[in-house]
Design a protein around this nucleic acid. Structure first.
Lengths: 227, 227
DNA sequence: AATTTAATTTCACCTATATTTCACTTTCCA
DNA sequence: TGGAAAGTGAAATATAGGTGAAATTAAATT
């Protein structure tokens, strides 16, 4: 889990940092709006904690800009002393996903971060099915038209992501983030993994299943199916 | 916006219903766990409000079942008087996306419902529509009269700008700035892109859709439509 | 601990497609 | 009718993605 804390108060930063780091989360800090936006746009965070009182710019504008421009829109939790209904209304209207007023229970903050970051029922069901393709997430095995596929661990995870996204394409950035989190390989390893996955998937079958969507990512396609 | 309220207290139901209905939302009620789960699984709701004290079953179990079994996992907001940290922890652990303790400000409930629905809809595609033209901004695909258009990345972005400006024309300077920012290409590349875009758009259709506005820019025109 | 095996990452080169550039033609309007 | 603005289309260039093997790392086995 990767979190960005945009907050200028050193004391609160330290306090938050210590508590959250105890949960094995990786935490980045931005002590002003400028750095906060920059980090939010160039990295993919699971949650962003945003203080509204920043030295250089209003936190509401920071929220709006991140929501507007981020490639993979991150959930934003606003942390502030402003506790009136009007303040909350403005906050949510700027795109906040949650809003916590100071002082707050750090443990509740953790709960809310987890809720925000919770991946969409990704590992809920044990088996995923798409046409003649079946994935067993427990044993990490995939069967296509009755044939057991010989997949590597990463190959299986990519396929799982693609099935979950179907029929939408999964963006490169999203796949990379899901596979490697905050420290993806230097080179474009995903390219090689897709290549290998295609080989395993399409062996001895007519239609290729993984389609490239230029400048976006990859998607699965059902053969013999007109939509 | 479609909401399911699972709550057995008639007074609260009425109160919630009246307030939320004022927001033009469509609301379904379930007075017990059984009906709640049934509705949640057979309909697609933008948000589910779940009271934890239900006559026939614990709300926590209801939450878990819905999260586990729903075709499209809906966001769930728990409403309860249980306000201790442990209660919240159990609630979130059951899969709740938000948690509000009674008594609460109805207006804040509305804000949180909107935030949940917004977050949920991120996973769906955002589409722009103009007559028989539909753009999917997430997958960067465009469909005209049921025909998938073969657009390049820049072609799609131009079309997106034009749709957003409709019925006003988008000026050349504006389009160029949106596409390339402060460092546009030396040559008048926009001219070529418009040319290519027209080819893709108008293929096999009667009326051209992109109209040139001399000395200004370009605008879209709806065919068979007199303004 | 050493060896083998497999998985993952890195890299260099190749191909397909997208974008830019440019020369030329047509259209518009004063 | 002359000049500016826009259209046309192909060539040159840039970039994204595919291919395949070698280098590296991690895992399993002896």
């Amino acid at each position: 889990m990767k979190i960005l804390i945009i907050e200028d108060n050193q004391t609160i930063c330290r306090q938050l940092g210590e508590f959250l780091a105890g949960h094995q989360w990786q935490i980045d800090f931005a002590h002003n709006a400028h750095l906060g936006v920059q980090l939010a746009l160039e990295q993919i965070y699971d949650v962003i904690l945003l203080d509204l009182n920043l030295p250089d710019r209003d936190g509401l504008l920071v929220c709006e800009e991140i929501k507007r421009s981020a490639e993979v829109t991150p959930p934003i939790l606003m942390l502030t002393a402003r506790d009136s209904f009007e303040d909350k209304a403005v906050g949510f209207r700027s795109g906040a996903d949650d809003y916590l007023t100071k002082p707050f229970d750090l443990r509740e903050l953790v709960l809310r971060c987890e809720a925000l970051a919770r991946r969409h029922s990704l590992h809920k069901s044990k088996t995923l099915t798409l046409g003649e393709l079946t994935l067993d997430t427990r044993t990490k095995t995939a069967v296509h038209k009755g044939v057991l596929l010989d997949l590597t661990s990463i190959g299986f995870r990519i396929l799982e992501l693609l099935v979950n996204c179907y029929p939408e394409p999964a963006s490169r950035a999203y796949i990379v983030h899901q596979l490697w989190g905050d420290s993806p390989p230097e080179s474009d390893a995903l390219k090689s993994h897709i290549y290998a996955l295609r080989k395993s998937l399409d062996q001895s079958f007519d239609k290729p299943m993984i389609k490239t969507v230029m400048n976006v990512g990859y998607k699965l396609e059902q053969p013999c199916h007109v939509d």
